Simulated scan of single mutants.
Amino acid sequence: MNTTNAQDIKPTVVLVHGAFAESSSWNGVLTQLHEKGYPTVAVANPLRGVKSDANYVASVLKSIAGPTVLVGHSYGGAVITNAVNGNDNVKALVYVAAFAPDTGETAIELSGRYPGSTLGPALAPPVATSDGGQDLYIQPDKFHAQFAADVPAAAAQLMASTQRPITEAALKEASGTPAWKSTPSWFIYGDRDLNIPEAALAFMAERANSKETVVMNGASHIVMVSHPDAVVRVIEHAATAE
């Protein structure tokens, strides 16, 4: 006889990567979540624009039955902020070194509101796209120091080679009504993040009334790669919160 009840069913954890990364950046987190029995989906974030990316993630969410925990890294935080759209299955948001913008705010403005970001000088010359836009990459020789200083150089080199570009327009696109005003949120980030300054991350976490904010000493922007255990703990706290 099947004795499983609704309380035993774990929510699906939906992970959304950010700019200059791709879904494999969640591999360490995914491995542990699988071991703990969580269903997971690592979304391939298009990185084309806040609204269009959020609409894509929203379509993925609609395909999942039952409760979900929505996790975003970096620019992926702006995406999850706009992707809930009243979906009652989303029970929690987890921001991993991520933007949590309010209405009208942009990623580029939030990252520059406080000193400490060195992303601008680390970017390669923009690549023109067929639609008249521009794609942005981090220079491969600067990727390790800028993005992933606390992971081994060989791993950072692989991430630099597989990084996916974001459009310049996406970083300048205004956010819509934020999901964190109606959905509980959790935050984790490193105090040596060179993409989004620690002060900006702390400001966004406090403003969102974060249920738990974890600051990893010495951690870079890619905290889920360097500290997957800590990220998984925060996700579990969000997943099991009443």
Rank of each mutant, 00 (worst) to 15 (best):
T3Q: 15
T3N: 15
T3I: 15
A6C: 07
A6L: 12
Q7G: 14
D8W: 13
L15W: 01
L15N: 05
G18C: 11
G18Y: 05
G18Q: 03
A19Y: 06
S23L: 05
S25D: 06
W26M: 00
W26Y: 05
N27T: 00
V29P: 01
L30E: 05
E35F: 03
K36W: 02
V41T: 06
N45T: 13
P46M: 12
K51F: 05
S52P: 13
S52I: 14
A54E: 08
A54P: 09
A54D: 05
A54Q: 07
N55F: 10
N55K: 11
Y56I: 10
A58T: 13
P67Y: 00
P67F: 02
V69R: 10
V69K: 09
V69D: 09
L70K: 08
L70S: 00
G72Q: 03
G76C: 07
A78K: 05
T81N: 03
N82F: 00
G86N: 13
D88F: 07
N89I: 12
V90L: 06
V90K: 01
A97W: 07
P101D: 02
P101N: 06
D102I: 15
T106M: 13
A107D: 14
I108V: 15
L110P: 03
R113L: 12
R113Y: 08
P115H: 04
P115E: 11
T118H: 14
A122I: 10
L123Q: 09
A124R: 06
P125Y: 14
P126V: 05
V127S: 09
A128N: 14
D131P: 00
D131R: 05
G132L: 10
G132M: 11
Q134L: 11
L136H: 06
D141S: 13
H144L: 13
H144A: 15
A149K: 05
A149Q: 03
A149D: 03
D150K: 13
P152C: 06
P152N: 04
A155I: 03
A155R: 12
A156L: 00
A156W: 02
L158Q: 15
A160F: 13
A160I: 11
Q163F: 14
R164H: 10
P165A: 15
E168H: 13
A174Y: 07
A174P: 11
T177D: 15
W180Q: 09
W180H: 12
W180L: 06
K181W: 02
P184A: 11
P184F: 12
W186I: 07
F187K: 06
G190F: 04
D191M: 14
L194M: 08
L194A: 13
I196N: 02
P197T: 05
A199R: 12
A199F: 12
A200G: 14
A200I: 12
L201V: 14
M204S: 09
A205Q: 04
A205N: 05
A208H: 03
N209A: 09
S210G: 14
K211P: 08
V214K: 07
A219F: 08
S220R: 10
M224V: 00
P228E: 03
D229M: 04
D229V: 11
A230F: 02
A230Y: 00
A230K: 03
A230R: 08
V231H: 00
V232A: 02
R233S: 08
R233G: 00
V234P: 00
E236T: 05
E236L: 04
E236W: 10
H237W: 03
A238R: 06
A238F: 06
A239G: 09
T240G: 15
E242P: 15
